[in-house]
Computed example of a mutant assay.
Amino acid sequence: MKIQSVRCVYFSPTGTTKTIAESITQGISPEFVEMIDITKRLQRNSQPLLDKDDIVILATPVYYGRVPEEIIPYLTSLKAARTPVVLVAVYGNRAYEDALKELHDIAVDAKFIPVAGGAFVAEHSYSSKTYPIAPNRPDESDIQKAREFGAAIRKKLQNAESSEHLTALTIPGQSPYIEPVNLNINPAKKYSKQIK
């Protein structure tokens, strides 16, 4: 496959998911890059045009072991055309639990073809001077690993005749997904995959 363009869709309230997504994109080293920031609600009014010749990166932080509830309606509205997708979960050095699996299932239902998935550590949003949790991450080592991940994706895709010829991914996580307890979350808004 020839890699010409990467469209990177990311939700990054603290900026760390954006940093990881940009680093992966640098490793892929495409001819054209479009960064699509969906952090603010007003930025979710339009849909990117997704072609089968694009590579899409879907990057999200992990909230309570899941994809953030805030962006699920946007992600489930995406329409791909058997477009290759890279799945990225950024977590606060605790656990990413079912977030990558949930992102995978959303992507498959939107007609993406998952070609790679990765979980990366970043400073936890609850981190403080008193209780530091992965402070100052992603650091240079994390950024380098994200670039190497991107380079490995590039090599994998260049060696494939098309995304249709790639082996299906095995993503860790369980289905049904873990349900956080003692939180004021509207379960009707959460993405749920029916087990068949």
Rank of each mutant, 00 (worst) to 15 (best):
Q43L: 11
D142K: 03
V108M: 05
R41W: 04
R137M: 11
I113N: 09
M35V: 00
A168P: 01
G173K: 01
I24K: 01
S23M: 00
Q43C: 12
P30E: 07
D139T: 02
T19M: 14
D142I: 06
Q194Y: 08
E148G: 08
K190M: 14
Y191F: 15
P187N: 00
Q194R: 14
I20F: 02
Q144L: 14
I171H: 09
A81K: 14
I153C: 06
E164S: 13
N136I: 00
Y191M: 03
P176I: 13
E70Y: 09
L100S: 05
V85I: 12
E161A: 15
R137Q: 14
I106A: 01
E70A: 09
A95I: 02
R82K: 15
A146V: 05
F120R: 10
P84W: 04
A59D: 05
M35A: 03
P73T: 09
N45P: 00
I3C: 02
L78Q: 04
P73N: 09
Y177G: 11
I28N: 10
S127W: 07
K145I: 02
E164M: 08
D98W: 01
S5W: 01
D139V: 02
V115P: 03
P187Y: 00
R147L: 02
T17A: 02
P48C: 12
A122M: 06
L157C: 08
N184C: 08
S163Y: 10
T17L: 03
Q194H: 13
P114E: 04
K156Q: 15
Q158L: 15
K190W: 07
I171D: 11
D98H: 04
L75E: 07
H124N: 13
F149Y: 14
K40A: 15
D54A: 03
R137I: 04
